[in-house]
Simulated assay, not measured.
Amino acid sequence: MRELTYYVAVSLDGYIAGPHGEFDTFLAQGDHMEPIWARYRGTAPTDLAEAVGFSVADGPFDTVLMGWNTYAVGLPDHHLANPYRHLRQIVFSQAHEAPAGSEGVHFTDADPVETVRALKREDGKGIWLCGGGALAATLADEIDRLALKVNPVLLGAGIPLFAERAYAPRSWRPTSTQTFESGVTFAEYVRA
């Protein structure tokens, strides 16, 4: 069965973006980039990866899931309506329609939990939950792995790793932790 991995950058105080969705304080350069990319190849927008010379082939995922706000980061200023052309892209939204140029991106108002359960039954590689915090909270019981790029910054407020939700505590078992000179700590966990 395929696994769902929540792979995301996060601040020391648990935010994946600032109060207005900004994430520019997360380190995009440093000694952490190549080793993490080697493990999670294909997790950058297609055009960006190609521009910096990172191959998107042979990564651990063939599907990426996003909430609307995560998807909309590339709109309209960045013109990334089809950001991960090398992956099957699913965007969950109740209120938004597909923008121009988004061919290849599947927009749905379907139940995320049922969608993930159906995806897990399919053949293929892993499923990447790219964001955001509200979608992660909805899918908390379906997440099999956490892969966290913990950045040495405090945001103080913003979009939490998991939005508030009434659910029982869940335990995770660490599988690896690596700290880099850049200050980024890369921590991976599986459901205990």
Rank of each mutant, 00 (worst) to 15 (best):
L87F: 12
L87R: 03
L87P: 10
R88T: 15
R88A: 07
R88W: 03
Q89G: 11
Q89S: 09
I90L: 06
V91M: 10
F92C: 10
S93E: 04
Q94M: 07
A95W: 11
A95Q: 15
A95P: 02
E97A: 15
E97N: 13
E97V: 15
A98F: 09
P99Y: 13
P99L: 15
P99Q: 12
P99W: 13
A100Q: 12
A100N: 13
A100K: 10
G101S: 12
G101A: 10
G101L: 11
S102N: 14
S102M: 14
E103C: 11
V105Q: 14
V105T: 00
H106M: 04
H106T: 14
H106C: 01
F107I: 12
F107D: 09
F107G: 07
F107H: 13
T108Q: 12
T108Y: 11
T108P: 08
D109Y: 02
A110K: 11
P112I: 02
P112F: 11
P112K: 03
V113E: 07
E114R: 14
E114V: 06
T115H: 05
T115I: 08
V116M: 14
V116N: 09
R117S: 10
A118Q: 15
L119E: 12
K120R: 07
R121N: 07
R121P: 04
R121Q: 15
R121T: 05
E122N: 04
E122L: 03
E122S: 04
E122H: 03
E122G: 00
D123H: 05
D123A: 07
D123L: 12
G124L: 03
G124D: 06
K125R: 14
K125I: 04
G126K: 09
G126A: 01
W128S: 01
W128P: 03
L129M: 02
L129F: 08
C130G: 02
G131W: 00
G131V: 01
G131H: 10
G132K: 00
G132I: 06
G132E: 00
G133R: 01
G133N: 00
G133A: 00
A134Q: 10
A134P: 01
A134N: 02
A134K: 09
A134L: 07
L135M: 02
L135T: 09
A136T: 00
A136S: 11
A136M: 02
T138C: 02
T138N: 08
L139W: 02
L139R: 08
A140G: 12
D141W: 01
D141R: 15
D141Q: 10
E142A: 13
I143W: 07
I143N: 07
I143H: 08
D144A: 04
D144L: 05
D144S: 09
D144P: 09
R145P: 03
R145L: 12
L146N: 02
L146I: 07
A147G: 05
A147L: 06
A147T: 07
A147M: 05
L148E: 04
L148D: 03
L148C: 09
L148Q: 01
K149V: 05
V150S: 14
V150D: 08
N151K: 05
N151S: 06
N151M: 09
N151F: 05
N151Q: 11
P152G: 10
P152C: 03
L154W: 04
L154S: 05
L155K: 06
L155H: 12
L155W: 10
G156Y: 06
A157D: 15
A157F: 00
